[in-house]
Design a protein around this nucleic acid. Structure first.
Length: 440
RNA sequence: GGCCACGUGGCGGAGUGGUUACGCAACGGUCUGCAAAACCGUGUACCCCGGUUCAAUUCCGGGCGUGGCCUCCA
């Protein structure tokens, strides 16, 4: 078997994956901020890193891979939404997290090993901030605590930007208490109406980046193998995570491999609420089986941009349906070697899918589909029947037509077929009888 | 303005310094009471302009286009 090769954003190159400890593979992926329905763009890293999680478990054994994906449940967008709705942030985040879990489960995503919530780790964040102050990498000013980017000689390395460039490019007014314009907030004060926690710097709340540093350290240690997320997180979030963690850890690297998935557009345009093309996972699941959404996502390489289109989804449904048809009923064998090889090459899922088409052995095909997270043949007839019909009624009509056809009453048979077609049901006559499925 | 990605046949989408990607759709055929499905067959692409090379879609430079990011807050 070939070795696993991953593209590392830090070095901008594919590198052989060498684990720190093959018995303890550790991966951290930035999870959602839970204040509203997750959209289809949020689903991309969830699905992409789910494939990586499955691959790592396959290579190193299920017991030897730890996958942490956090839930951000303290954030100013959360505060604003909770205040708007007049509920506590806990109520809002619990509700949203629950919805998130339901959505991604439908996408065939395995639960991560740990799913820490920021508010459960405030103490660790405060402790880390204190360490940063002691290490002269952070300072308190006017109720805030700021990270001093000058404490990190290679700040900007991940994003490949120098401090000078960033300062020159800054478009926003700089808070007067900052020592360097690029200094970022570790802790900020909360007024009486804003959620807050007691700290050495008064009642306040954490900045955005510190939670991932604190939770990563708590669950995975100072240095772990893989850190992942969307490419939009490279700067500032991951850059700042690195700065915080490495300064708190005496320079030990935060992660050995940095992986970022590409962005997603909808029908050729950027997804935004104002354009009205904002697709939530929840809404997409009303129109398509979760497996089709997953397949559509994996038809593009994770680092490539992806254009999310109706046409593409239809095509995905057709392709996946055919693959699952071929695999259905087969005893699962082992994952096809070419499929695995494609995944080992920086998770080349389009190549893996191409290999699926070439796979002649149905057992290997079934196993490969399952390995990629397509666990069933539920894609078709996903119980999304037209309003006012039910499965029993359709079955009865199908049977009636079959009888008519057998009696060579083709006129009646065609009439029934036309009627079924009007309901969106397509018939398939085979030697064993007639099967049906829903057309789209 | 700065930094960074991407641009492949009707569509989706890998990959490669010189050989068929693959799939969807389309078209032709087999099969079928008629269909659908399935199966067989057909198609020859790499944004533009230079450069390097015996040879570039594939390496280098420039251009154009699309997208992402550019401290807290937005």
């Amino acid at each position: 078997m070939r070795e696993l090769v991953l593209y590392d954003t830090m070095t901008k190159a594919k590198r052989a994956f060498v684990p720190i400890d093959a018995k303890k593979i550790r991966m951290y992926v930035c999870g959602p901020t839970v204040y509203d329905f997750a959209h289809i763009g949020n689903a991309r890293p969830i699905i992409v890193f789910d494939v990586l999680f499955r691959l790592l478990r396959h290579l190193y054994g299920e017991a030897h891979v730890t996958y942490v994906r956090n839930i951000t449940d303290i954030d100013d967008k959360i505060n604003a939404r909770a205040a708007e709705r007049g509920v506590s942030i806990r109520t809002l985040t619990e509700e949203t997290a629950k919805q998130f879990h339901a959505d991604i489960a439908a996408l065939g995503v395995l639960p991560p090993t740990h799913e820490p919530r920021a508010t459960d780790h405030i103490a660790e964040m405060i402790a880390m901030i204190e360490r940063l102050i002691r290490a002269n990498a952070a300072y308190a000013a006017e109720g805030h605590v700021l990270f001093n980017v000058e404490a990190k000689a290679d700040y900007g390395r991940l994003a490949r930007r120098s401090l000078d460039e960033m300062i020159a490019g800054a478009r926003v007014d700089v808070a007067p208490f900052k020592r360097n314009p690029m200094d970022f907030v570790l802790w900020k004060p909360s007024d009486d109406k804003t959620p807050g926690w007691e700290s050495p710097w008064g009642r306040g709340r954490p900045g955005w980046h510190i939670e991932c540093s604190a939770m990563g350290e708590a669950l995975l240690g100072e240095t772990f193998d893989i850190h992942g997320g969307g490419i939009d997180l490279v700067f500032p979030h991951h850059e700042n995570e690195i700065a915080q963690s490495e300064c708190a850890h005496g320079g030990a690297p935060l992660a050995n491999y940095w992986m970022h998935n590409g962005f997603l557009q909808v029908e050729g345009q950027k997804m935004s609420k104002s354009l009205g093309n904002f697709v939530t996972i929840h809404d997409a699941l009303k129109d398509w089986p979760g497996e089709v959404l997953r397949f559509n996502m994996l038809r593009s390489h994770y680092r490539q941009p992806i254009d999310w289109t109706e046409r593409g989804l239809k095509e995905s449904e057709t392709i996946l349906g055919r693959l699952e048809d071929r695999a259905s009923g087969a005893e699962k064998a082992s994952v096809a070697a070419p499929v695995l090889d494609a995944l080992l090459d920086d998770m080349n899922t389009p190549q893996a899918i191409a290999e699926l088409h070439q796979e002649k052995d149905e057992g290997a095909l079934a196993a490969s589909l399952a390995f990629l997270g397509f666990a069933s043949d539920k894609t078709k007839n996903d119980k999304r029947l037209p309003a006012g019909t039910d499965e029993a009624a359709i079955e009865a009509m199908v049977a009636a037509r079959f009888a008519a056809r057998k009696a060579k009453d083709f006129k009646e048979a065609d009439r029934l077929r036309a009627e079924l077609e009007a309901m969106g049901v397509i018939l398939k006559d085979g030697p064993e009888g007639t099967t049906w499925e829903l057309k789209r």
